[in-house]
């Protein structure tokens, strides 16, 4: 009996392992496809094709398209906030904004989709964007409070300090086709935007 149970258990755990791998693979391929074709326009059939699985396999792992989209966006949010935290922890305003640009540049195509299509997406996707912004505003506000007290930067309301920066970066990202056709926007303009912004806020 024990022996049979043992034999039986092996393929089961193999199957589970495989299932997990397929799921992970689907999320990765969906991430790339959504960055390429857009969060609204990408079809599950295209994701299946890119992942090299049947269309039905996608729905064996995710009951609906929205469920897959939410999973990909959540996964993305977790990765970006982790990266921002890694890069930005405890630095000056200058260092934090530099880290912010660096973190975004690593995920620019997908992040741009999220910025452009955010208001059309399910609520969970918008919440992820706010979560990413919260990771940035958390580090920025801590550094800004220190530097305002030290007279390094001007005393400005925290939300406007943050939104002025985000507004600038997002405007360039959302119109990347005009600012930097076919090439990453932040690589080309990041330094200029950062220097300009620091000039505005410096006391």
């Amino acid at each position: 009996m024990t022996q049979y149970a043992g034999v039986d258990e092996m393929p089961e755990s193999q199957r589970q392992k495989q299932k997990k791998q397929t799921r992970k693979h689907l999320i990765t391929m969906a991430f790339n496809q959504l960055a390429k074709d857009g969060l609204i326009n990408t079809r599950t059939a295209d994701i299946a094709k890119a992942a090299g699985v049947s269309h039905g396999t996608v729905f064996a792992h995710f009951p609906t398209r929205d469920a897959l989209l939410t999973e990909v966006i959540n996964e993305f949010g977790a990765r970006v906030t982790r990266r921002l935290h890694e890069l930005a922890g405890g630095g000056s305003v200058h260092e934090i904004l530099e880290a912010h640009l660096k973190g975004l540049a690593e995920f620019e195509p997908f992040y741009t989709r999220l910025v452009r299509e955010g208001s059309l997406l399910p609520e969970s996707a918008r919440n992820t964007l706010i979560m990413i912004q919260s990771a940035v505003s958390f580090h920025l506000s801590q550094a800004a409070e220190r530097e305002m007290a030290a007279g390094i930067i001007r005393r400005l309301p925290m939300h406007l300090l943050f939104n002025t920066w985000i507004g600038l970066v997002h405007y360039y990202l959302a119109n990347g086709d005009l600012f930097s056709p076919g090439k990453p926007v932040l690589e080309r303009y990041g330094k200029e935007l950062l220097e300009h912004y620091l000039t505005l806020i410096t006391e």
């Binding site: 706010i130 919260s134 505003s137």
Partner: peptide
């Protein structure tokens, strides 16, 4: 409160977003 203070969102919208984030 943190979202309102650092990102300037409407109070109720910030609360809804916070709920959504916490649910994860």
């Amino acid at each position: 409160n943190f979202i309102v203070r650092t990102q300037g969102l409407d109070k109720q919208a910030a609360r809804d977003a916070a709920k959504g984030m916490m649910a994860q």
